[in-house]
Simulated assay, not measured.
Amino acid sequence: MATSNFALRIAPELKDAAKALTKIYVWKDGVSILSPGSSINDVFSFLIRRGLADIEPMIAANLADETANLEIQKTLAMWLITNSTASHVVADDLEKGTPARVYLEKIAAEVEDADLGYDCGSYRGEDRASVMDGLAYKQHEVTAVNKALSDVRNALAASSSWRSNAA
C-alpha cells in the first residue's frame, strides 16, 4: 500500500497554519472560500493558489468580525446574568444604538418578515439557553480564528527566513 508522506517534508510552521485553517471559515467578499472540515490537502492546494500573504488579511478581518459578534453575545449574557429572573432578552432591554440591540432588532425584523407558511407568534427575544450556547460557540470561534491567524503569521515569518537562506 502506497502512502503519501510529502507533508512530512513541509516546514512545521506551514503545517501548523494548514491544520489551523481546517478548523475555521475563511471569508472573502461575503463568500466562504474555506470552511471547517476542509481536508489538509484542500488547504495546501488553497495555499498554493492563494499564498499565505493573501490569506492573512482575510483571517484578520474574520477575527475582527468574530470578536465583534462575541462582544454582542457577552452583552446579551451579562444582561441575563444581571436579570436572573428573565427568561429572554429583547431589544428594548438594551441601550439604543448598541451592537447587541441592533442585532436583536435585526433578528426581530427577519422573523417578522419571514414567510414561514405558519404563524410563529411574535418574537420573544433570545432565550437564556440560546444566548449561553451562542456565547460558548463564539468563544470557540474566536479562539480558533486567533490560532489560525497566529499560525499563518508564524508561517509567513518563517517563509521570509526560508527565502533569505535559499538566496
Rank of each mutant, 00 (worst) to 15 (best):
A64R: 00
N83M: 04
A155M: 12
Y103L: 08
A11Q: 15
V89L: 04
T67G: 07
L8S: 04
V142H: 02
A77K: 05
L70P: 04
L47C: 06
L104C: 09
A136D: 10
V152Q: 01
W27T: 01
A114D: 02
K28L: 01
D115K: 15
L8W: 02
T85M: 15
H140Q: 06
R163I: 09
E66H: 04
G125Q: 01
A144R: 02
A86N: 08
G37T: 05
D16C: 12
T67I: 03
D115C: 08
S38H: 05
L94Y: 15
L94H: 14
N146W: 00
S35F: 11
A100C: 12
A17P: 14
A7L: 15
E71K: 15
S161T: 12
E112I: 04
N154R: 11
S164F: 06
D93R: 02
S130E: 10
L94V: 12
E66T: 02
S39H: 00
I24K: 07
V26C: 08
L116A: 14
I55R: 00
G97Y: 13
R101K: 15
N69F: 12
W79C: 00
I55V: 15
A144N: 01
V43W: 05
V102T: 14
G134A: 09
K23Y: 00
V152C: 05
I33M: 06
G30Q: 01
